[in-house]
Design a protein around this nucleic acid. Structure first.
Length: 374
RNA sequence: GCGGUAUUGGUGAAGUGGUUAACACGCUGGUUUGUGGCACCAGUAUGCAAGAGUUCGAUCCUCUUAUACCGCC
């Protein structure tokens, strides 16, 4: 039955919206942050833990699962949910982003038919097409599949972006035609860099194809500025239908999430909470903190006193610093738990603020604390 | 007591009679936004055991002292 988005409330002063997304694996409220589990695992967390953290939906990656273990094995296992024992909704990214990062020579490797690139595992030559990406995702049986798009950086030339948008539209159509799995939703992706006309055109034409939801892509791949990100959102949102969910791909800095929600976005995904955790950093209300910093050596307070995550309930900063500086795997795990909990809580608070029509005040409050640095 | 060898930053250590003493680790900061990559970037000895001498110039040569290790009495 795919998915169903229900708009529940529009915030009075901004474009922020509160909604519910119904999937075959449960309902979750939006705005929502989606942790990234590229290889069918959110690094260091068990699927059960994630589920218990009220994580609405997680993301897995078509490209990585295609290479290992292969979509047929996952199909044999009974689909991605069965395979990884995750009860909640799962979205699969199409591999479009990996194409961007793995195709060496863009001109040569990206052609109308699809993309040539080399496996990051063994260097084997691979060819991914919109049809193949969708076919793989059909087999993975995620709740939401993503269209296979080209994901150029906003810094690309206008001419390049213009052609890229057209190609992504053609690929979207091909993917939609190839989509077979009736239980799986399919999202379209709006591209066009930070150009008003390209975003508008991309959005309008993508919406014409009538996808189950819409994404804004190309804002988190190669040093896009905040300004470019906001433009990409603002130029796309007006052309997206109200009754479909909106997903901003790759964004996860707390303040960026707030800005994007205010501009009308519903869902986010980002590797940041788990990646910075592995590098010893944690989100807090008072900004990001770095456990490599010597000042935590004898700090026996909790990471965040008012956070109810497993890490904050049980461990001190001094211990977390010790785990991080000694490169113990528990350190990365405990910080990942906290960082994901932090972003989930942030979206919870945003939903409350939308409900109460006070998201601008909420933003001001959070910004003041977040930027002051402890 | 006599001989030999050694003594370079927090650590392990390169090195040369001549502008800013290599490298690694550690340490101190920072970066990370649809995850190939627990990664990347930056800073970190005004000084080469101490003192004196030779020299235009010494961490590198000479002497004295200290310390360590190895022999011998």
């Amino acid at each position: 039955m795919g998915i169903y988005y229900q708009l529940e409330h529009k915030e009075k002063n901004t474009k922020a919206r509160l909604g519910k997304l119904k999937t075959n694996h449960g309902v979750f409220e939006t705005p929502m942050f989606m942790p990234v589990g590229t290889k069918a695992t959110v690094k260091s967390l068990s699927p059960e833990e994630l589920y218990d953290m009220h994580c609405g939906i997680i993301l897995a990656n078509t490209y990585h699962l295609w290479l290992r273990p292969g979509e047929d094995i996952i199909k044999k296992a009974g689909g991605l949910h069965q395979f990884m024992n995750y009860k909640g909704p799962i979205l699969t990214d199409s591999g479009g982003f990996q194409v961007f990062s793995l195709a060496k020579n863009k001109e040569k490797d990206i052609c109308e038919e699809g993309v040539h690139f080399k496996s990051h595992i063994d260097g084997k030559k691979l060819f991914l097409t919109p049809e193949l990406s969708i076919e793989i995702q059909n087999k993975l049986d995620s709740d939401i599949a993503m269209s296979f798009d080209e994901c150029p950086p906003a810094s690309a030339s206008y001419e390049y972006l213009k052609q890229s948008v057209e190609r992504t539209l053609r690929w979207a159509k091909r993917g939609k035609d190839a989509h077979q799995n009736k239980n799986q939703a399919l999202f379209g992706i709006v591209q066009g860099g930070a150009h008003k006309d390209l975003r508008k055109h991309s959005a309008i034409e993508t919406v014409k194809m009538n996808f189950d939801g819409y994404s804004i892509g190309g804002v988190a791949n190669d040093g896009e500025s905040k300004e470019e990100m906001y433009q990409a959102i603002d130029y796309s949102i007006p052309y997206l239908p109200e009754d479909k969910v909106r997903y901003l791909m790759g964004i996860g800095e707390p303040l960026d999430i707030i800005e994007a929600v205010i501009r009308g976005v519903d869902i986010f995904d980002c590797v940041l909470p788990t990646r910075i955790a592995r590098h010893g950093q944690a989100f807090t209300r008072f900004g990001k903190i770095n456990f490599h910093n010597a000042k935590f050596k004898e700090d026996f307070s909790k990471l965040e006193e008012d956070c109810d995550c497993y890490t904050c309930k049980n461990y001190t900063k001094a211990y977390l610093r010790h785990l991080i500086t000694t490169n113990e795997m528990l350190g990365a795990r405990l910080l990942s738990i906290h960082n994901i909990a932090f972003l989930i809580r942030l979206t919870e608070e945003l939903r409350k603020a939308i409900q109460d029509d006070c998201i601008l005040e909420y933003k001001k409050d959070i910004e003041k604390k977040y930027l002051q640095k402890k």
